[in-house]
């Protein structure tokens, strides 16, 4: 596989395909085994946003998330040929991404996104061209607050909440990704949400102000 082959259009194209189709998954893996560079490009294209968002929610920092996503895809590339199809490729990719985030997060405490910078200015804004500056600032502030609260959760709770509330997985799917029992998933989600509510509602007056601003 050459760099030129990998930097072609397939990588920047965001075409979507069914991601829970096991036959499709196995076909991609087989093509990857046979050396088809387009196979991994398809995996990247289909899962880029998911991997990046999981990394972002786990790390709380867009720059760390980019590194984590990149490293996750390298792991996927190295190990894709060993994928046996015992679960959906999407499940396996979630697992690889979370294992990598967990490993990195346990080695170093990633910096939490600050609500405000030293002079009261927000830092590291991710621009959203679809919104006006004012609306973007309000949404960004609320998003930043929720992200910061999420970053305070223990990793096991954060994983469960991210998979349920941000990725929309069912309890059964989460149990498969995390390789734990459904009762454990239920408990982690409940405890994670409870801690989040406590942290977020300590800041209730501001949150209410935000709601009023929106309406």
């Amino acid at each position: 596989m050459t760099a030129a082959a990998l930097t072609g259009n397939p990588w920047s194209d965001s075409a979507s395909r069914p991601v829970n189709d096991l036959d499709h998954d196995l076909e991609i893996v087989e093509r990857h085994r046979l050396g088809d560079p387009e196979a991994f490009a398809e995996v990247f294209r289909e899962h880029e946003e998911t991997v990046y968002n999981v990394a972002l929610r786990m790390s709380g920092d867009p720059f760390d998330a980019a590194d984590l996503a990149q490293e996750t895809f390298l792991r996927i590339y190295r190990h894709l040929a060993k994928f046996k199809g015992r679960s959906a490729l999407k499940t396996w990719i979630y697992r690889v991404a979370l294992n990598h985030c967990r490993s990195k997060l346990s080695r170093r405490r990633l910096p939490m996104q600050p609500l405000l910078g030293p002079d009261g200015e927000t830092e590291r804004d991710l621009p959203d061209p679809a919104r006006g500056p004012e609306e973007r600032a309000v949404a960004s502030d609320e998003g930043r607050r929720v992200m910061a609260a999420l970053a305070e959760l223990p990793v096991a709770f954060r994983e469960a909440v991210v998979l349920r509330d941000l990725e929309g997985l069912s309890y059964e799917e989460i149990a498969e990704v995390l390789k734990v029992r459904i009762g454990t998933v239920r408990s982690r989600i409940a405890r994670g949400r409870d801690k989040l509510r406590t942290v977020l509602e300590e800041d209730l007056p501001q949150a209410e102000h935000h709601e009023e601003t929106k309406s």
Binding site: L6, T7, F40, F44, E49, Y52, A66, L74
Partner: peptide, 16 residues
Amino acid sequence: AAPPPLLAERVARHVA
């Protein structure tokens, strides 16, 4: 969040 545009290029470079 939309992944950073350079992610694809970075992954491609490291895959190489």
